[in-house]
Amino acid sequence: MKKSAIDNSFKWFCFFCAGLIGLLMLGFFIQLSLNSKQVWEVFGWRFLISSEWDPVAEKFGALPSIVGTLSTTLIALLIALPLALAAAMFLVHAAPLIRSVLGHAIDLLAAIPSVIYGMWGLFVLVPFMQNKIQPFLAETLKIHHIPVVGRFLAEDYYNGFGILTGGLILAIMILPYICAILRDVLQMTPPMLREAAYGVGCTRLEAGKDIIIPYGIRGILGGIFVGLGRALGETMAVLFVIGNIMEMPQNAFSGSTTIAATIANCFPEADGLQRSALFALGLILLLMSLFIQILAQSYLRAATAHRGE
């Protein structure tokens, strides 16, 4: 009798601990909603589409931060995804020694704290962008003279900071994450399938494109979403290089801000309505990353369920 009492209380204690995770998630929602109530009452849905951010006039809008977040994330993904996929394909096929050395190197790249990326971005990447990359893009290639899309890509004025630099540093950061997940997913392809593809005369590219990627597509999507989630919520790396300008960005060279960077930058000095606006931005970020994470997890779970066959 006594034994079962101990067992029961241990079990309930464990359930309680596991329940903490659910409580935490609810807590995030409740806290952000409560603290941002004031802003929703004052601005309503206009908060989402207004691009003003004027603490003196007490006018706040989330649009510049949202646009900055989405555009840096998009740039990061456009750069990182093809590289990560190609690198993962290489790692899957590489000789065991090369695979383990490079695989570990990529794992370590994921372990470097983001503030180091930010600092490196500020002191090395920003001057490099200002002196080399941006003049090349703007003056040599003149990409802002491309019709229609050109004016979103670049302008003649640049100082190294901005969306492009932020996206680039995010790409460097999320590359190892995506690569590690894609590598694991690609390795799950049954060897039999792969060998059968080679057996009928496929080249590596064809086997990869037609057999391995379709087989692991759910896992690949999951990996992409995990990387996307990291890029969305990343604070420090972006904060250092984005320029922290609370205006609608005009093109990829404009200084801008992201939701996470705005919170980190303004929160310590903010009070009253501005603080509430920052909590509202937090709520938007929470919803965005929750959505992405749920997509990521359901795809990854579908991929592992697939493995059981």
């Binding site: 952000l32 919520g233 997890q297």
Partner: peptide, 25 residues
Amino acid sequence: AALRFSANVMMGMPSVLVGLFVYTL
């Protein structure tokens, strides 16, 4: 299963939001 799912989701929580949460808490 629900708790495992929330743990996976929590692993991707932007860390700046954790800062806000603990600040108010």
